[in-house]
Computed example of a mutant assay.
Amino acid sequence: MAQTWTHGSEQNETCPKCNSLYRVTTFRLPTRDSDYFDCQVCGDRIREWNDTEVPSFTLIQRGQHEESENK
């Protein structure tokens, strides 16, 4: 199992599309990780990374998401 540790303080980040609020904690890994995070509410891409510092997102508050413009 890879060793990880928390790096810095937690911060909040808001989805630009639906305004859902996330708590973001950054972990430092011994090797580079390439991945992305999509909003759990609307599916919009919030962040991509290819780094040894990897964010972990926890949904704090759901934003407003319109299901479809055609309905």
Rank of each mutant, 00 (worst) to 15 (best):
M1W: 09
M1H: 07
M1K: 05
M1F: 05
M1Q: 08
A2T: 10
A2Y: 15
A2W: 14
Q3M: 13
T4D: 10
T4M: 10
W5F: 14
T6M: 08
T6P: 01
T6W: 04
H7D: 04
G8N: 05
G8R: 06
S9I: 08
S9P: 04
S9H: 09
E10L: 05
Q11L: 13
Q11I: 11
Q11P: 02
N12A: 11
T14S: 13
T14K: 13
T14N: 15
T14P: 02
T14M: 11
T14A: 04
C15N: 01
P16D: 14
K17H: 08
K17I: 04
K17V: 05
C18F: 01
C18V: 05
C18P: 02
C18L: 04
N19D: 13
S20C: 02
S20I: 01
Y22P: 00
R23F: 00
R23E: 04
R23K: 10
V24N: 07
V24L: 11
T25C: 12
T26I: 05
T26A: 08
F27L: 07
F27A: 01
F27T: 02
R28N: 13
L29C: 08
L29F: 15
L29A: 09
P30G: 11
R32G: 05
D33W: 08
D33F: 09
S34W: 10
S34M: 10
S34Y: 07
D35K: 07
D35L: 06
Y36K: 08
Y36H: 11
F37I: 00
F37D: 00
F37P: 00
D38G: 06
D38L: 08
C39I: 06
C39Y: 03
C39M: 06
C39F: 03
C39H: 00
V41S: 10
V41N: 11
C42R: 02
C42V: 06
G43L: 04
D44E: 14
D44I: 04
R45D: 05
R45G: 07
R45I: 12
I46Q: 02
I46R: 01
R47F: 05
E48Q: 14
E48Y: 10
E48M: 12
W49D: 03
W49A: 05
W49H: 07
N50D: 15
D51H: 09
D51I: 02
D51Y: 03
T52R: 14
T52Q: 13
T52F: 07
T52K: 13
T52C: 14
T52G: 03
T52S: 13
E53S: 01
V54S: 09
V54W: 09
P55W: 01
P55F: 02
S56I: 03
F57A: 07
F57K: 04
F57P: 00
F57Q: 02
T58S: 09
T58C: 05
T58W: 02
I60K: 13
I60G: 10
I60D: 08
I60E: 13
I60H: 10
Q61N: 11
R62C: 06
G63D: 09
G63T: 07
G63N: 08
G63I: 03
G63F: 03
Q64L: 12
H65P: 03
H65W: 12
H65V: 09
H65E: 11
H65T: 11
E66V: 15
E67T: 09
S68Q: 03
S68L: 04
S68K: 00
E69K: 12
E69H: 07
E69L: 14
N70R: 12
N70F: 08
N70D: 15
K71I: 12
K71R: 10
K71M: 12
